[in-house]
Amino acid sequence: MSNSDWPLMVFTLSMQFSVGVVLLYDLFLLFPIALKKEKLPLRFQMILLVALVAALTGVVFSLLHPGNPVNAMKTLSNLNNSWLSREILFFISYSGMLLIVTGLQFRFPSAVRSYKWLLDLTCLTGLVLVYVMSRIYWLPSMPAWDSIFTPISFYLAMFLSGSCFLLLFQLNSGSWTSQKGLAVLIIAIPVIQVALLPVYMSWLEEAGDSARQSVSLLLNQYLPAFYLRLGFEILTIAFGFWAFFSIRSDTLKRRNLFIPALLAFITMVGALVIDRFLFYQQIVPIGNL
């Protein structure tokens, strides 16, 4: 890995994680609570805080980079054409909204219903952000990135990391139905990821010389990493099942969930980090110029 890749990796992953957390929080926790007009458990505030911290990590990795906010403004000059401009716009909007919503939650924990619309909007912005982010990579000059597989993989990463975190977080407090739902995601997403791999690879094989070289990079130089990643995915699926069957409506038995949820979270992180690492490593510019 060239020493300039890891910031990008951290940035994309932490943003996708952040959006995933906020989105699933909104869907799985707030939505049922809002429906039932229940009171928001206090520690749920922490969830948005974690998402915010993740987004702020992104801030560190991007906007503060030149140490010069003027540069950030400059990068918004080409919204008409540049996906990078758009990414920065959505990134700023998303982070800004998340900051506000998190602040509101801490300040007015019980009035969550009155500003839930803002959280919904944050989610939407986040979803667009992940798409825009993927468009940055969706370039004809970079055949291995130049396809719908890029946004798919970004969204899958978003959902998987979000669900793993939320499951781990709401061991005691979440409703068992939402827990089951999260566990299903933890099982289903890696299954989709693994199933997509051969599809992606065979598509690459057909996508020209440089894309073919990407495949051969994956299958030769990076084969160990490739297998490691697969291993982590399969483990995540396994722990997902474990978690699924540990979830009972009977709250007394919930403690059992900690170990599988934690293991699923850890293997998920492993799988996504390697996956993203390979995403950058496999790239062979078109013509390999």
């Binding site: 910031p7 560190v60 991007s62 980079h65 030149p66 140490g67």
Partner: peptide, 17 residues
Amino acid sequence: MGKQNRRDFIRTSAVAG
């Protein structure tokens, strides 16, 4: 170019450092 071709915008201050 090749694999050195990376988006620097998102590089950290560690690099600039």
